[in-house]
Design a protein around this nucleic acid. Structure first.
Lengths: 244, 244
DNA sequence: ACCGGTTCCAAACAAAGGTTAAGGATGGCG
DNA sequence: CGCCATCCTTAACCTTTGTTTGGAACCGGT
């Protein structure tokens, strides 16, 4: 996906509620963006740093994660093209977590200075970006529920269905029976708050039960009905529909 | 605590970074606020609703929570006077969780309309409020780590220490050896992602070990050193210090 | 084709936490 | 004063998840 397509998917999301006018859209399109390529598994910004720019994902996948003193890592979110996973750094000087690529990725960097100028000049754009960070927070809330309340198999399929929904809203198109999910079993464990061994157990189980097949960086849905039943996934928290 | 003191603590937090000027502060003080009293254990806004105002806590305690289809409740955050726990509703039309009082509380309601007028007229204020919602999100991130990675006793003391830190930053004053923590053991379980029985087990254990005493709606610290060791609490994620 | 490093798979055992059930303390209220 | 409701407390037993460990499959680089 190249720059224009990504900007389009970003704009589609931002436009959702605040009704950007043509001048707002033009101003966003005019933002200076420095495109850089990144290897997989490499930090974009790390806990403790004070970045001076935000990162738009043009191509690839990223995660945000925190590491405890004891050395355990918790994955907080998974990010796809069209998203700006560290937009919060615009107002929170110091990073409180890491932002890391999962796979080789193309990133677009936008300076805080230019974003601040834009948001101060155009309250509509400020609202739209603000709203985007609020959806981010809504996803964190659901992630807390996931890790706190659901048994491990439900946790996994819930995350998978969330990612599928978000991929669909960017790429468009019909239901995806197969989609990218580029996490190793160890990373799946870190996302779900379980050990890699247990992650393997439940993946194996879900495969044996012919519900989903999670392997080689992909998810393949085998039984949509039982999957929905297990995941209890309700996409309302993604706030994709502006009127809803 | 009455209205002025609460506005003061709100302003202190908002002023942290964006450096509000006197006109900004006057504009915030001029916001029309409708003060109402609320019983304990009563919803202020519920999942699915479309509120038209935000709620400033003047006196009391509130929680935010989500309930799964299976009927399990997860507490997402605990809120204290000076905070606006549903500020996100300004840009996210529909609630994706509940906001509930824990104890009898005094609340100040501010209409979305007046907030929107304010933020559009004064970018500094918009930035300050935006930043406040970003700190909210940072707390969610740490909550994910808490529920996902820490064993139950560490989860409890981590939440307690977070609340103490936030109470201190509002009320001011020296280290608190005892502070309010108005959750029942069932609610503690809902916050930590464990059953009330297990909550009781770990509370008893922490008491026997002379680390903390959690009872009758209060936390009493018995051994500050071992508490810190157990909680691994690092307040950086609260972003209280603007320069840090 | 081989090698070293990941990643995945798997089994046996241990520990944390869930379930069920029931008695006891506490506190508001008639 | 006694009643009821809520909360706390505890125990016995069961399930899920963690731990440790080892081997198999896969993959990029030489």
């Amino acid at each position: 996906m190249e720059r224009d397509a990504v900007l389009a998917s970003l704009l589609r999301r931002l436009d959702a509620v605040s009704k950007l006018d043509p001048a707002d859209i033009a101003a966003i399109r005019a933002l200076p963006i420095a495109v850089r390529h990144w290897e997989g598994g490499r930090a974009i910004v790390s806990d403790g740093e004070r970045p001076s720019e935000c990162c738009l994902i043009i191509e690839g996948f990223c995660i945000r994660s925190k590491t405890t003193e004891a050395g355990q890592r918790q994955i907080l979110s998974i990010h796809i093209p069209g998203e700006i996973p560290d937009l919060q750094s615009l107002h929170l000087r110091r990073m409180d977590h890491d932002l890391v690529t999962l796979v080789p990725s193309t990133l677009g960097f936008i300076s805080h200075a230019s974003l601040r100028t834009l948001t101060h000049a155009r309250p509509n754009v400020a609202d739209a970006l603000w709203r985007d960070t609020l959806i981010d927070a809504a996803i964190f809330r659901e992630w807390i529920v996931n890790v706190g309340q659901r048994p491990a198999p439900a946790r996994l399929v819930h995350i998978a269905l969330e990612l599928r929904t978000r991929l669909l809203s960017v790429r468009g198109g019909a239901e995806l029976a197969t989609f990218e999910f580029p996490l190793t079993q160890e990373q799946i464990g870190e996302a779900l708050g379980i050990t890699p061994v247990h992650a393997n157990r439940i993946i194996r189980q879900l495969r044996e039960d012919r519900i989903v097949d999670v392997s080689r960086g992909h998810v393949r849905v085998l039984d949509e009905t039982r999957l929905a039943e297990l995941a209890q996934f309700d996409d309302r928290y993604l706030h994709q529909d502006p009127v809803a």
